[in-house]
Computed example of a mutant assay.
Amino acid sequence: MAAVGKSTGRRTRLRRVAVAAVVVGVVTAGSLTAGCTGGGKPVDDGRAPEPKPTPSPTLSGERTASVLAVKVDNAPSARPHTGLDAADIIYVEQVEGGLSRLLAVYASELPTAVGPVRSARETDLELLRQFDRPTLAFSGAQTKLLPLIDRAPLHAEPPGRTPGAYYRAADQAAPHNLYLRPHHLVPSAPGKAALTTTGFTYGAAPEGGEPETTRTVRYPAARFTFTWDDSRDRYRVAMDGTAAVTTDGQPVAPATVVVQYVRMRPSGYFDSRGNNSPYTETVGSGTAQVLRDGKSYEALWKRPEPGDGTRFTTVDGEPVNFADGQVWVVLTRAASRD
């Protein structure tokens, strides 16, 4: 009888361990996918900064100094944005239904908050290979995409992985109310040296160029207009006809705008309404227009491998330098070129 009692006790303990493991698994999966549908539990309910925790280490035990990339919502109801003016590079991507989302890359400085944060796409994984193991902050992803994110050479940071990193703004409606506290993920800005892997070159403008003070790029359900402001040596940005400013009133004003013509094709992923997520190919080659100093420069772009940076050159192979300051790279379908 004593032996039977011990066996029953062991089975009871094993059942408890199994149940606990299932519960943990469900919570983890929920935290990863919540932002994908716009639902999920509130991550936090206040904007007040919290103490800066030590970011989680890499497998080797050390955290490398690399860029922070944040997937930012760009639906009209998600504007104005927070922290967008501090980004070094902003990539504009087409998503389902012809809408757009932004991928903001931070190296020079980290703002107090960034958002609203939304879900990642397959395109992001190839695009971010240009950086050395970046940290990717995103609200979630489709279930089928999560294994690809886990295998990608980056530090994935969805809600729930680092305590206090995300909060939900009480004055905005979900899913456009999720914000990131960057310092919870990255202890300090890595500096501009972390951007050298992009292949971008900065310096004096190339010879020539055509005067062009306004440029509009259209997606099926979104448009961006960049207007040169000579008094500020920057481009004023308008999204869907409305001037882009941050929540604290700062204008979003890049020094360089790159209109990069790329191939887009259907992916193997769909949103909750059945719309296909377009896949934007950023490896390969093609044409581009570089806008700086109120002029437009014809350029060629080339990125042979995912781990390579993207080079922008003239037809003679000379670098097309960017102006010092924020860079916007608008990824648009090659067939849409005017």
Rank of each mutant, 00 (worst) to 15 (best):
T37C: 06
D233G: 15
V245I: 09
T162W: 00
V330D: 02
A334Q: 08
F312W: 06
P163I: 07
R263N: 13
A141T: 11
R101F: 01
Y279E: 11
V43N: 07
T314G: 07
T8K: 06
S108P: 01
V22G: 01
A113S: 14
A86G: 03
Y166C: 11
Y219P: 02
P304Q: 10
Y166W: 12
F312V: 13
P55A: 02
Y166D: 10
L185R: 01
A169S: 14
Y219T: 07
I90T: 11
P211M: 01
V259L: 04
A20V: 06
T58L: 09
P211E: 06
E62A: 06
D171F: 03
K302T: 13
K6V: 15
S139G: 14
V186S: 10
A75K: 00
L68S: 06
L59I: 12
L195G: 06
P190D: 11
V43Y: 00
E318R: 05
P76H: 02
P211D: 06
Y269F: 15
D85Q: 13
D85C: 00
P147V: 14
P304A: 15
R16V: 12
F131S: 02
G284Q: 07
P190V: 11
G25L: 12
M264I: 11
V27F: 13
L146H: 11
V70E: 01
V315P: 10
S77D: 14
A3I: 15
A65I: 08
A120C: 06
D271L: 10
V27K: 10
V117M: 02
E210P: 01
D171P: 09
G25I: 15
L110I: 11
G307C: 07
R292A: 14
A65T: 15
G9V: 12
A335Q: 10
S188I: 06
R10I: 15
T313L: 03
V22T: 09
P111A: 12
R79K: 12
L32Q: 11
L291S: 10
L110R: 03
V114W: 07
G35I: 08
P251G: 09
G160C: 10
P134F: 08
A244G: 01
T54I: 08
V237D: 01
A78Q: 05
V237R: 02
R63C: 05
L331R: 00
G274C: 12
N177E: 05
G38N: 04
G39Y: 11
L14A: 14
G97H: 08
A113N: 05
K302V: 12
R303K: 12
T198V: 09
R292H: 09
R16W: 03
V23T: 13
A87S: 15
G46D: 15
G83A: 10
L99P: 04
P175N: 08
G9E: 13
V105L: 00
P57H: 11
A174N: 01
V315L: 06
A152S: 15
S139A: 15
V320M: 00
C36H: 07
A86K: 01
T247G: 00
A299G: 05
A299W: 04
G317F: 02
G5K: 12
V43D: 04
P182S: 02
I90H: 00
A334W: 05
Y269C: 09
T313P: 00
T12G: 03
A75N: 13
L195F: 01
G9F: 10
Q172G: 10
T332Q: 08
D150M: 05
T256L: 00
L145M: 05
D338V: 08
P55L: 00
D308M: 09
